[in-house]
Design a protein around this nucleic acid. Structure first.
Lengths: 308, 308
DNA sequence: CACCACTGATACCCTGAAGGTATCAAAACA
DNA sequence: TGTTTTGATACCTTCAGGGTATCAGTGGTG
């Protein structure tokens, strides 16, 4: 144990507990005169008599009692400081700033965080809702420790692990003719009009959708851009158009839209956990470690059927 | 300001705040190399890198941030310890064990304590209900700081101040013939039977009542001994007898008994504040000081009349 | 009452931790 | 390329803090 309090304080505590200079000196492994002097100095500095000592008896004064209690608190505070620093160094304590997208928070992130919390309850996690490209900047700039964002990701100094892959689904209004099919060929959507997320916050995702359509041989006609998932689904339900969306929990809560797998593509929306390889925060390594080791537990999901 | 934390901690705090060794050194009035070494030693002792320092930049590691926060707490704890010790020495902080009797707690004590609390809120007062003679023993034995008890008091090493004098009153059942008088001569009670407190807890008080009667030329016939004030008044109301009781607030709350001043005596029940002249607790002196300086404010009391 | 055991305080010495000076090496910048 | 500025290193110095010897009351004991 490191000794961060002045020796005077340690000595005072020992003497106050023993109420005996020689015994306290033995306990502290110092010579008795050392204590006589230390207490005198302490009392001089404070201008307060702490110990009432006669030739035969040592007792605490009222001020000494008060000081002793407070010294205990200070000593505990100092011990705690050491221990927390050591734990923080091992990544077992501290703070972690985690970024997430809508896809992540509606997908795997909650269970990941719950798992991590059960492993290392002393780490406090700050969650920040942040678009994928903003997260990447923040991670590179050191403002974010870990990001959960839409891949693919490339960047020097970034490390990543895929935490989730969600197949793309066709999202159709309830009475749309294509909803009769078990699965929807991507090309079948070429004549449809699309509702998509706007380019500002959905940059990563929308450009992937567009690439997907391009590969299938058409350019999607976007009639509406929406800022968030609810708006997109609402507009589809309102028969403003169709859209393509990854298969995540969020979809299955609505009864006014139909989801169908895409037939002729294996493309998936990839959610990556990303962190900086130059990160100095040990909690990051710890977090990544826990997440990768427990990554296997996926939440099973049942297929939605139209009509009841 | 005394410096009770190891210099290392003070240095670490300064550097963490300045994030600059030279500036921190200036602020601390030490040479810069001192800080380089102190931090290295601190880090060695903890086994934790606290400051990430390149030739051009100093920044806190994650563990360093944690340690800094905890160091602040420890520093505050230590400052607080000093200040409380100094205050305790001046009697402005600390603990006071105060004894009281039923008469005191129903008389002047509440306002005295309220006044003291408004003067010195940092003193915590432990109140102990305790009979007069037990209080005297406890004060002499150092187990009690101040007592509020029934006088007169004599004892070497005891100091005292009279905080209240209450004239004795005749306490009569509601329909008692003597209740017709404005004031009751003590002798008129010589043929009555008495309800008094028992000798165990009411020793001081009962012996004074008996002395009073003896001076008036009779020995009171005690038919009932009761352990507390409520019992005494209840027994009087039940026409078991009369009693003599000091004039204090408690009396005036009952409608089934009548209080009349005693006509032919000036005797009063004296409540003394008593403390040990050898007391080492500065709070005692402070308390006594506050009480004696503000003793003048007595609570005025109106006379009770029979029959609405 | 003389004696002894034991207490905390004092006097004095010594060591090493902590502070100082000079300087270095790397980085940033003009 | 030279200059400035940074934290680190080497080495010297000093005094706070630790040690030993001893003192001076105190209380118990034969």
């Amino acid at each position: 144990m490191v000794r961060h309090l002045q020796p005077h304080i340690r000595y005072f505590i020992a003497i106050a507990e023993e109420l005996h200079f020689r015994r306290a000196a033995e306990r502290l492994h110092v010579a008795q005169p050392v204590l006589s002097r230390a207490i005198r100095q302490l009392e001089d500095q404070l201008g307060v008599i702490l110990l009432q000592r006669s030739r035969r008896n040592v007792s605490l004064t009222a001020a000494g009692s008060v000081f002793l209690e407070e010294c205990y608190l200070a000593r505990e505070a100092m011990k705690r400081a050491e221990q927390r620093a050591i734990k923080a160094n091992k990544g077992e304590s501290g703070r972690l700033i985690v970024g997430y997208t809508d896809f992540a928070i509606n997908g795997v992130l909650p269970s990941i965080l719950a798992t991590f919390h059960s492993h290392l309850a002393e780490v406090s996690i700050d969650l920040v809702r942040c678009d994928s490209h903003e997260q990447l900047e923040a991670i590179e700039g050191g403002r974010l420790d870990v990001g959960f964002l839409t891949g693919p990701v490339s960047g020097a100094g970034l490390r990543q692990v895929t935490v989730h892959e969600a197949p793309y689904m066709a999202v159709l209004p309830y009475h749309h003719p294509l909803a009769d099919l078990e699965s929807v060929p991507l090309k079948a959507l070429s004549e449809e009009v699309f509702v998509l997320g706007n380019m500002h916050t959905w940059r990563h995702f929308v450009s992937q959708i567009k690439a997907l359509c391009f590969e299938a041989g058409f350019i999607p006609r976007v009639v509406k851009e929406a800022p968030n998932s609810d708006s997109i689904f609402g507009l589809v339900a309102a028969q403003m158009g169709v859209t393509i969306y990854p298969d995540c929990d969020l979809n299955h809560n609505r009864r006014d839209i139909i989801l169908r797998p895409l037939a002729d593509t294996e493309a998936k929306l990839i959610t990556e956990m990303v962190w900086s390889s130059s990160s100095t925060n040990p909690v990051v390594a710890r977090f990544v470690d826990v997440v990768t080791r427990t990554r296997t537990n996926r939440v099973p999901r049942c297929r939605q059927e139209r009509g009841q």
